[in-house]
């Protein structure tokens, strides 16, 4: 007699996955071919019109520009700084926990609240960033062309200047995100057997760099795969900060119009579900492709013990 016990074991998980994950994705995929709006009785099939819009209109070109700028600044920096901070803290004996807490605070803080603080800090006239910069005027710092220009013409409007806005937002994203990676790397570091370092030392690895290359970095491979994947997905999903800084329209001339915000604006604010769903599908595609690429690249060189 065949036993169906296995269905009872995987059934609940399978059911939930279909209902809360696969089904909504399918619905979003279906909606992306229509002009559905919430409240309408029905919707018309519009074919690929929504997708054509996404890949032709300049608004969406800006959306891709902002998203990729953000992702390609934030991912390398949060991973790099996370690893650096983890290595430094790991080498500390006494104040490790202190620094751990400091670097992890931004991760725990509500980003909406932090955004308000940053808005004050970066205020063009009363913000402490620009007032501090102005103090440096007249000193040797003016030898730097950008600085001299700032002293003469006023320092940038960090959040509202088209040339700076996305980078400022990315900077805050790095500030907010690297503590999380640091904690992951710290966990990875504690799992490296001490004996490997002793073996490396006896094998003649005298410098810290040699030990890092021989032991630390390869042994952190699995952690790095995870950290990079998580950072990538998290920075693709950036939304709350943009919403807090620019509730209307995604920043100066849409230079901070990231994908998540576009989905929100189109799908929720303007009730254009069809186009919102189409952006969602494209977003999903990007995240999947990037995750696959990086898995391929990294996993080939990664050793799982």
């Amino acid at each position: 007699m065949r036993s169906y016990a296995h269905m009872w074991f995987i059934g609940p998980a399978l059911f939930l996955m279909v209902v809360i994950l696969l089904l909504p994705i399918g619905v979003a995929g279906a909606l992306s071919f229509t002009d559905y709006s919430l409240g309408n009785a029905g919707a018309d099939f519009v074919g690929l019109k929504n997708y054509v819009q996404i890949f032709t209109r300049s608004t969406y070109e800006k959306m891709f520009g902002a998203t990729f700028r953000y992702v390609f600044v934030v991912v390398p920096l949060t991973v790099g700084l996370g690893l650096g901070a983890a290595l430094l803290i790991n080498s500390l004996g006494r104040f490790g926990d202190f620094y751990k807490t400091i670097y992890f605070l931004p991760v725990m803080a509500a980003l909406i609240a932090m955004a308000i603080v940053w808005e004050f800090a970066l205020h063009p006239t009363i913000g402490f960033v620009n007032t501090t910069l102005e103090r440096g005027c007249g000193t040797w710092l003016e030898a730097w062309g950008w600085y001299a220009h700032g002293c003469a013409e006023g320092f940038p409007l960090w959040l509202t200047d088209r040339a700076y806005a996305i980078w400022t937002v990315a900077f805050i994203g790095v500030w907010q995100g690297f503590g999380f990676n640091m904690v992951l790397y710290l966990a990875g570091l504690t799992s490296i057997p001490r004996e490997l370092y002793h073996a490396a030392e006896l094998d003649g690895a005298k410098t810290g760099w040699q030990r890092f290359r021989l032991v630390t970095w390869p042994m952190l491979g699995p952690t790095t795969v995870f950290v990079v994947t998580i950072s990538l997905i998290r920075s693709f999903q950036v939304f709350d900060m943009v919403e807090a800084f620019y509730p209307q329209g995604g920043g100066p001339s849409k230079s901070v119009y990231v994908m998540m915000f576009a989905i929100y604006e189109k799908g929720i604010q303007q009730n254009l579900m069809g186009i919102g769903a189409a952006i969602t599908v494209v977003f999903l595609g990007f995240v999947m492709v990037l995750t696959l690429i990086q898995r391929r690249l990294v996993e080939r060189r990664t050793h799982y013990v």
Binding site: E195, H198, L202
Partner: peptide, 21 residues
């Protein structure tokens, strides 16, 4: 003198081989 400069070789209980090499 640091271990690297003593020219001794050690075999560990766990062998401590570099697993990625």
């Amino acid at each position: 003198v640091r271990p690297a400069a003593r020219n001794l070789a050690m075999v560990f209980q766990s062998y401590a081989l570099y697993p990625h090499l």
